[in-house]
Simulated scan of single mutants.
Amino acid sequence: MKFLADMGISPRTVNWLKAAGYDVVHLVDEGLERLPDDEILLKARLEGRILLTVDLDFGYLLAVSGATLPSVIIFRLGNERYEIINERLVEVLNRFERDLIAGAIISVSDRDFRVRQLPI
C-alpha cells in the first residue's frame, strides 16, 4: 500500500511507515503544503495512494464527487499525537486492508472505526 500524508499528520508517522516498508510521502516533502483539498484527493488518486488526514472535509468531498478512489483514513482522536495515530493505524491496516484497496473512507476514533465503502 502507498500513502499520502496530509498536513495534520506528523512526519514521525511518515518515517514510521517508511521504516515498516511502506511507500509514503508527506505533502510538505513535496512542497505542496498549500495544495487545495480537491487537488490533494486528485494527487492521491493518480498516484494510487491512501490519504491519511485529520481533516473531515475529505470525507465530504469524496461523498459529493461519487468517486471510488482514493481511500481516506480520517483520524478523529481526542489526542492526535503521532504515537496514538500510529497505534490506531496499525489496527486499521490489519483489519481493513481489503476495504482500503477497494475504496473506502475509514473514520478512526478513540473507541471505534467506521468504514464507508466508496462511492457513497
Rank of each mutant, 00 (worst) to 15 (best):
88 R>V: 07
72 V>E: 13
57 D>I: 01
96 F>W: 09
2 K>E: 12
38 D>S: 12
84 I>R: 15
71 S>K: 00
88 R>I: 03
110 D>P: 03
62 L>P: 00
45 R>G: 05
43 K>L: 15
41 L>G: 04
64 V>Y: 02
2 K>V: 12
92 V>G: 05
26 H>A: 15
115 V>A: 08
106 I>Y: 05
67 A>P: 00
96 F>C: 04
36 P>L: 07
35 L>E: 09
3 F>V: 11
32 L>F: 04
40 I>F: 02
88 R>Y: 09
26 H>N: 07
66 G>E: 12
22 Y>P: 07
46 L>M: 13
120 I>T: 05
4 L>H: 08
30 E>H: 06
59 G>V: 06
54 V>H: 08
59 G>E: 12
118 L>E: 11
26 H>S: 15
112 D>W: 11
88 R>Q: 10
44 A>P: 04
102 A>Q: 13
2 K>W: 11
26 H>Y: 10
117 Q>R: 15
37 D>S: 11
83 E>Y: 08
23 D>Y: 08
116 R>E: 15
11 P>M: 10
38 D>P: 02
9 I>Y: 07
69 L>S: 14
53 T>L: 05
67 A>R: 06
71 S>R: 00
61 L>P: 07
33 E>T: 13
20 A>C: 14
14 V>T: 11
10 S>K: 10
73 I>G: 02
58 F>Q: 03
94 N>K: 13
18 K>Q: 14
31 G>C: 14
10 S>I: 12
95 R>Y: 05
67 A>L: 07
66 G>D: 11
109 S>C: 06
91 E>A: 12
93 L>S: 08
60 Y>L: 14
46 L>T: 14
49 R>L: 02
37 D>A: 09
32 L>E: 12
109 S>A: 10
100 L>I: 08
34 R>H: 14
101 I>R: 15
108 V>Y: 02
102 A>H: 09
40 I>G: 04
114 R>E: 13
118 L>D: 06
68 T>K: 15
67 A>G: 02
25 V>S: 13
68 T>L: 12
21 G>N: 08
1 M>D: 04
105 I>P: 01
69 L>E: 12
12 R>L: 15
48 G>K: 02
87 E>Q: 12
59 G>H: 03
45 R>M: 13
72 V>D: 05
101 I>A: 10
109 S>N: 09
101 I>N: 03
114 R>I: 11
4 L>T: 09
44 A>D: 11
119 P>R: 06
68 T>E: 15
3 F>H: 12
49 R>Y: 04
68 T>V: 10
14 V>I: 15
42 L>Q: 10
56 L>G: 05
55 D>W: 03
32 L>V: 05
67 A>T: 01
28 V>W: 02
97 E>N: 13
20 A>D: 14
43 K>V: 04
101 I>C: 07
38 D>I: 04
72 V>T: 10
6 D>V: 01
87 E>M: 06
12 R>K: 15
26 H>T: 11
36 P>T: 04
51 L>W: 09
117 Q>K: 14
13 T>N: 08
33 E>L: 12
113 F>E: 05
33 E>M: 14
92 V>W: 01
81 R>Q: 06
93 L>M: 10
19 A>V: 10
7 M>F: 04
45 R>C: 05
53 T>A: 06
84 I>G: 01
36 P>R: 00
89 L>R: 10
93 L>T: 07
18 K>Y: 02
90 V>I: 14
30 E>G: 05
76 R>F: 06
77 L>S: 07
28 V>E: 11
